[in-house]
Design a protein around this nucleic acid. Sequence first.
DNA 1: AACATTTTCGCAAACGTTTGCGGTGTATTT
DNA 2: AAATACACCGCAAACGTTTGCGAAAATGTT
Lengths: 330, 330
Amino acid sequence: MSNITLKKISQSLGLSISTVSRALKNHPDISEQTKKRVRELAESLEYEPNAFAIQLRTKDSRIFGLLVPTVSNHFYESCIQAIEEESRKAGYTVIILQSGDDPETELANLRLCRQNRVSGVFACITPNTSNVQPFLKLEDAGIPVIFFDKVPDFEACNKVCTGDIEAAGIAAERIIAKQKKQVLAILGNPNLSITKKRMTAFKAAFEKNIATAKLQIVHANNTKDAFDLTHEAFQQAKRPDAVFCMSDEILAGTMKALQLLRVKFPKEAGIISISNGVLPKLYYPEITYVETSGFKLGKTAFNRMMSRLSGSTFVQEITVESVLVEGGSL
Amino acid sequence: MSNITLKKISQSLGLSISTVSRALKNHPDISEQTKKRVRELAESLEYEPNAFAIQLRTKDSRIFGLLVPTVSNHFYESCIQAIEEESRKAGYTVIILQSGDDPETELANLRLCRQNRVSGVFACITPNTSNVQPFLKLEDAGIPVIFFDKVPDFEACNKVCTGDIEAAGIAAERIIAKQKKQVLAILGNPNLSITKKRMTAFKAAFEKNIATAKLQIVHANNTKDAFDLTHEAFQQAKRPDAVFCMSDEILAGTMKALQLLRVKFPKEAGIISISNGVLPKLYYPEITYVETSGFKLGKTAFNRMMSRLSGSTFVQEITVESVLVEGGSL
DNA sequence: AACATTTTCGCAAACGTTTGCGGTGTATTT
DNA sequence: AAATACACCGCAAACGTTTGCGAAAATGTT
């Protein structure tokens, strides 16, 4: 009783398999009456086409592989959500594979994609991925690979990234517009390329304007660091009247310190951060942030995939633009 | 050049398809020498077996369906991570489908699982899922369904939940031990079995003790509700001196309201919640919570699935135990 | 040398679809 | 009445595997 096939339906109805197949696909060759009979029986038997047989025959799996270091991350989550959502709407299924930042697991996951004859791969590579060859081989085999967020240096591939530079600039402009005088900028690990980019952009914005503001830049490797640094800064003689947090990780630490010190924002100090938006909305007032939306990035990556699938072969790097989301913290 | 099949290998080697197939599976019928030849050619050609053809033939997809309201949720994330990780180790692939809390999408996703002839389904249902029949039909077809976290009331099915009763009990005991007098308990949608359980347990704990405390129970469907309800409660003549939040979703709303009203905790009011631990650590002082680990829950669900797949038909509800994690909020 | 055994391999069917092509029967046109 | 057109449907091959069964070749036993 479990598995209904076209064959079974055709036998019950005294039709051929092909007729049943065509009837269910609303093929013009089949009479309305026959279609009706077939549809009704299929319905009542709860027939579900065997996806494997279909792909074996048609060579179109309608499956995307989604490679990601981990699923437990605000930013990736929203990417995943976007990609999965759009894919489902477009009739694709997504299989998500986590590498745990281990290049070997990543490779195994990539093989899984090949075995499942995926229609395309979205990949956010690990920091340790040195060899992009396996990915490019997929491209050679006609399977589009869209890199997102963490992308390889290799040029000839499709990449979708966040606008790191732009985002920091926007935040800086905003602080300047608010005429803040004593600005504390908490950035991440200075070795990370993302940190470098954001720092230069942030500084540049201040230098470009006749900034009367005093700028204090510090680096935090984690939430705890950010907590300590903020705590320290707000016990100086001259307290900051604005804080810029480069990431969620840092914002979390800063906010914790501000809660401890009962600093009232935006009155005593303004806060602005770069985020995908989840964390800033947890506070009251909500934190003003420059959105680097994983969601938007996911959508863009998806669109890129679709245009690749429909023939476009143009290779490019897309940057999703950042927008300022006003909370009440600055 | 793209798709290598057994046939192609067999032709290059002057062997039959079956011999090549057996050679790659290390079948004893094949001589070592032949195996070696086959393996080497397969290797150099980068042969990858066609998963679809295999499943069509063997009827074993080695795919799990993972149904979840959304992937963007601290708790689900950790469940997903655990399930995906374990599955991969066991040679299974996971396809993750989000319902967005829409029962219709959920149903569509379930169909997708059937079409892909999944080996099993992990399901965390939406609050609005009224009809469990479609899930049970999968069971009838021999496909195990393991419900986790948000599970249906229906008894004859496999469920893995957090220790709802236990966790709520622990939280209640804690509040009682602190001799709170005016307790606000914010629970979720009253239709959810998880809500019902937590509520009864919470109430029971209060009734068991010679509770002089006044207990006010309200229901929030989302973060916004929780914000409003908290805001309201703290503007009553008699303010709560303790708040119990049933979930992260609720805690987020409550904390936002408390920040708005500048309620000092734990001095003016104690807070305790049930959480997986990420959110509580964002505040200062950190929120005291009863930990219900999504990770642990995921692992348990996976184990349950495996034992189902290996024959066990015993239907049961498993509860993963909860522990109290002291913050400074109560 | 005849027979029995074992090793090694190939044949062919099956899994559930899709689809090109051809074959009926009926209606329409000359 | 013959020819043409059309509507409707079935045959059979193909997709890439796995696997029971049988066959040939090699080896071992009397």
